[in-house]
């Protein structure tokens, strides 16, 4: 850059400056959205937790119950993945991290298909030749319960039609504004693997086996009754539980996206500021050099006239 003239430097300062304005604006938009999604996420967390706790206790009561959505299939031919990403980039490693985690997990499976939530997931898996039976593109920023239900309905249908033999949910957990963790949870069937990942998601949760043992030891509890009968209760309750998991995943992801974007844009703004500072210095030097040169030329010319 040493050879740049004054005008070039000035132009670059201007262009970096306008980039900075954009990143600054995006940072502010992201932090506003982050505040909103974070509030919704925090409101919904007790709900997800309550569902997890309820389902684990049902599974504890009903050890060994046979149900299409609980009993694992003998052979797993195809695995379904719900991958939640954003629609847009400019948010650091947020999209890549979650897709990489999904890809890594798929390596252990024979065949996979992807239900993509977000433009990025759709493009990514399309490029790699995965089968995408459905893509949801219009709600990754502000998901609500109906969205979660739509996804669940689609996946349960695929699963019950035996088009897939297991379903995983891949999302990004919002730990804090600067820390997001890709997570993979098994949705169906609700076998040991699914239960383990559910138990691990929160410290306060206990494994159904533990719960069953406790109940036996204490013997205070009468046996739980399920009305009208166990299969019907499970038919209604398991989908609701899945809804809560998917909604949780959507909200966690969307908060993570805003968080990641805010951090990325903050860094970009800082870098732009640094760059402008450096360029300004260069500009001043170039200006000074030009003036010095002019003066010496004038002085030289005056000397020559004597």
């Amino acid at each position: 850059m040493a050879g740049m003239g004054m005008r070039d430097i000035k132009r670059r300062i201007k262009s970096v400056g306008s980039t900075k304005q954009i990143t600054k604006a995006m940072e502010m938009v992201a932090s506003a959205k982050l505040r909103k999604t974070k509030a919704r996420l925090e409101e919904s967390r007790p709900f997800s937790l309550a569902w997890k706790r309820a389902l684990l206790s049902f599974l504890g009561d009903l050890q060994g119950v046979e149900h299409p959505m609980i009993t694992p299939r003998e052979k797993v031919r195809k695995s379904g993945y719900i991958v939640i990403t954003g629609n847009r980039g400019l948010c650091g490693g947020y999209n890549t991290n979650v897709m990489k985690a999904a890809l890594e997990h798929m390596k252990t499976k024979k065949a996979s298909c992807v239900v993509a939530v977000g433009q990025k997931a759709k493009d990514f898996f399309n490029r790699r030749g995965y089968d995408i039976p459905k893509a949801y593109l219009d709600f990754s920023e502000m998901p609500d319960f109906m969205d979660a239900k739509d996804i669940r309905r689609f996946c349960v249908e695929k699963y019950l039609n035996e088009e897939v033999d297991e379903v995983y949910l891949v999302y990004t957990q919002f730990v804090s504004t600067i820390s997001h963790k890709p997570q993979i949870v098994k949705l169906m069937p609700l076998d040991d693997e699914a239960v383990d990942s559910c138990v691990e998601s929160d410290e306060s949760l206990k494994h159904p086996k533990e719960l069953a043992e406790e109940a036996q030891k204490e013997k205070i509890h009468e046996k739980m009754n399920y009305e009208p009968n166990v299969p019907r209760v499970l038919n209604l309750v398991v989908p609701n539980y899945l809804d809560s998991l998917i909604l949780g995943g959507l909200l966690e992801s969307s908060a993570s996206e805003q968080g990641a974007r805010r951090v990325a844009m903050e860094n970009a703004t800082n870098n732009a500021e640094e760059m402008i500072e450096r360029l300004q210095l260069q500009y001043n030097r170039a200006r000074q050099a030009a003036i010095t040169q002019e003066i010496s030329e004038i002085v030289g010319g005056a000397e020559a006239l004597k």
Binding site: H221, M224, V233, L236
Partner: peptide, 12 residues
């Protein structure tokens, strides 16, 4: 109706 000391029950 739910009251204290109800039969342990799960209902959709």
């Amino acid at each position: 109706g739910l009251m204290n000391d109800h039969l342990p029950l799960v209902l959709p």
